[in-house]
């Protein structure tokens, strides 16, 4: 018969262990330690002892947003990777899938998130969004319409907006890498 417990009543000699690391923390350590970022991306850690909150800069080298440097904040919660990281754009930019207040419409950040995805997947997804804005999933409806109706006009709007100019009466942040 399997003896699950010894029937002794005293278990005084159990040594106490140090606080355990959470599964989320290990997973983030693994995700980060194995990152191989392209030269268009740079990460900064406001508190290098906290791996769960950091910023990512993407400087696309081609397409509409080339020349700009776009900053995103990442907040990873204790339920990662069951929950996706919370990602916001820290600048006010003219982009069909990014709202002025920083919300981002990227499927893997919400409805299509899966625990097998990594921080790298999200970063690649964000870069893709800057290379290929998607007019079908608009958060900034006017930008999406501009992109759908007149790509040249959209391109010049982006050019203006990332230099701190106004588009459709809205002023955007200057995000040029060399201001």
């Amino acid at each position: 018969m399997i003896k699950i417990w010894s029937m002794k009543k005293d278990n005084a000699t159990v040594d106490k262990k140090k606080p355990k690391v959470s599964a989320a923390q290990i997973r983030v350590q693994k995700d980060l330690g194995e990152l191989d970022l392209p030269k268009t991306m740079k990460m900064t850690f406001p508190n290098p002892e906290d791996l769960l909150n950091f910023e990512l800069e993407i400087s696309p080298d081609e397409a509409f947003y080339a020349g700009g440097t776009f900053k995103f904040s990442f907040a990873v919660n204790g339920n990662y990777p069951h929950d996706p990281p919370k990602v916001k754009c820290l600048q006010k930019i003219y982009h069909p899938n990014i709202q002025a207040d920083g919300n981002i419409c990227l499927n893997i950040l919400r409805e299509d998130w899966k625990p097998v995805l990594t921080l790298n997947s999200v970063m690649v997804g964000l870069q893709y969004l800057l290379l290929e804005p998607n007019a079908d999933d608009p958060l900034n409806k006017e930008a999406a319409e501009d992109l759908r109706n007149n790509r040249r006009n959209f391109e010049s709007n982006v050019h203006k907006s990332i230099r701190g100019g106004s588009v459709n009466g809205v002023q955007y942040d200057n995000v040029m890498s060399h201001k």
């Binding site: 350590q29 194995e34 191989d36």
Partner: peptide, 24 residues
């Protein structure tokens, strides 16, 4: 091959990303 180290979530040394690797 390229191990990264932390104690209770606090990093000692991480192989990547570059900025963190340099700081640690």
């Amino acid at each position: 091959k390229k191990p990264s180290f932390a104690i209770a979530g606090k990093p000692l040394y991480l192989q990547a990303p570059k900025s963190l690797e340099e700081a640690l």
